[in-house]
Design a protein around this nucleic acid. Structure first.
Length: 225
DNA sequence: GGCCAGGACACCA
DNA sequence: TGGTGTCATGGC
């Protein structure tokens, strides 16, 4: 499959999903900092649980970099308990806030307004921020075109035979970014629509009846080199 | 009661 | 470099 064929396939999938589900207008957050916090809290966790934890943070007036930097880690963990893995996530949130406050004077706008690859690399250097969380921060908090690959994207594309099921994160990210223009809106909607499709039709147990992508051609050479 | 969810990391061979 | 274990709550 050539690069333009790949782009055509992705764009056809996008149009089909947009028709089926409508615009998703992600990320569900009131501020860039809430995006960052949500991206960490939703790691391997249902969004409903992460959302409950965010509501508790708001209630405790801790949805602020300086406040979160100052709060004791054990208290933070208790507040975000509904998100699961709360001890790990409290440490990860503290790590991010310490970095932001000590290196960027707590100025998230300045932190986010850098060159995209610099920002992504900086996020990846922080303990607890892996590739998917970093890309979520770049795409939704910084509004820069870094494609977010998640479990649903991998599952959907491998089940249809478009990529190998064990494709690595960066290879699958390149599969999209190599053939698409860097369009923030498109990347955001594409990721959100794939998650929406995953919720409805591509959980771990295969159940594709009624899937909007039924009838799409299988096969393909795998991810871009 | 078991499975699953919008991952990341430590450890080991 | 790749495989495995660990972290944990809440909905269905």
């Amino acid at each position: 499959m050539t690069r333009s064929q790949r782009r055509g396939l992705i764009e056809r999938i996008f149009r089909r999903l947009l028709r089926a589900f409508g615009p998703q207008s992600w990320w569900p957050a009131d501020s860039p900092f809430e995006v960052v916090v949500g991206a960490i809290l939703t790691q391997n966790t249902a969004w409903t649980n992460a959302s409950t934890a965010i509501a508790r943070l708001k209630e405790a007036e801790l949805l602020d970099p300086e406040a979160m930097h100052r709060v004791e880690e054990g208290r933070l963990a208790e507040i975000i308990r509904p998100s699961g893995y709360f001890n790990q996530k409290a440490r990860r949130l503290k790590t991010f806030c310490r970095h932001l406050c000590e290196r960027w004077d707590g100025n998230l706008d300045r932190f986010l307004s850098r060159d995209m690859e610099q920002l992504r690399a900086d996020c990846l250097s922080l303990h607890g921020i892996g590739p998917e969380t970093a890309d979520s921060i770049v795409l939704y908090a910084a509004q820069k075109p870094s494609f977010v690959v998640d479990a649903y994207t991998r599952r959907i594309f491998s089940r249809h035979g478009w990529v190998p099921h064990d494709v690595r994160y960066d290879a699958l990210r390149d599969y999209f970014m190599d053939c698409l223009e860097g369009d923030v809106y498109f990347f955001q909607e594409c990721h959100a629509l794939l998650v929406r499709l995953g919720h409805r039709h591509c959980r771990r147990k295969p159940s594709c009846s009624g899937c909007p992508l039924e009838g799409f051609p299988p096969g393909g050479p795998g991810p871009a080199p």
